[in-house]
Amino acid sequence: MWLDPQSQWWQAQTLNHQQVVRLQIGPLVVYLQRKTGEWWLHTEQLTEPEQNMAHASYLPEWPLHKVFSRYVFTHEPLQFCLTPLLQDRPVVVKTRQPVYLPVGEEVTFYISSPVVIRLELKQPDILLQELPTQRLSDTWFGPNTQAGELCYADKTQARHSKEELPARAHRAITPIRVKNNSSQMMSIEKLSLPLPFLSLYGLPDGSLWTDLVQIDHQNDAELSRLNIHKQMPPGHANAIRLSRPRQAFEKHGLFRVFSDLFQHTERS
Rank of each mutant, 00 (worst) to 15 (best):
Q11S: 10
Q13C: 11
N16S: 14
Q19E: 14
L23A: 10
Q33C: 09
Q33A: 08
R34V: 02
K35H: 06
K35S: 10
T36G: 09
T36L: 09
W40N: 09
Q45M: 13
E48H: 12
P49F: 03
E50S: 08
A56T: 04
L59T: 07
V67I: 13
V72Q: 15
P77M: 01
Q79T: 05
F80K: 02
L82T: 01
T83S: 15
L86F: 07
D88P: 04
T95A: 15
R96V: 14
R96W: 12
Q97R: 13
P98M: 04
P102D: 10
P102F: 03
P102K: 01
V103T: 09
Y110N: 01
Y110F: 04
E120M: 10
P124G: 04
P124R: 00
I126Q: 14
I126C: 13
T133P: 09
S137V: 07
D138S: 09
W140A: 01
F141G: 05
G142F: 02
T145A: 15
C151A: 11
R159S: 09
H160V: 02
S161Q: 11
A169I: 00
Q184W: 11
S187P: 00
K190Q: 14
L191P: 00
S192R: 07
S192I: 01
L193V: 04
F197G: 06
F197D: 11
L200A: 08
L200R: 06
L200P: 09
P204A: 05
D211V: 03
D211C: 12
D211I: 08
Q214I: 13
H217G: 07
H217C: 10
Q218D: 10
R225F: 12
H229A: 15
P233D: 08
H236D: 10
H236I: 01
L242M: 06
R244G: 13
H252P: 00
F255V: 01
L261I: 01
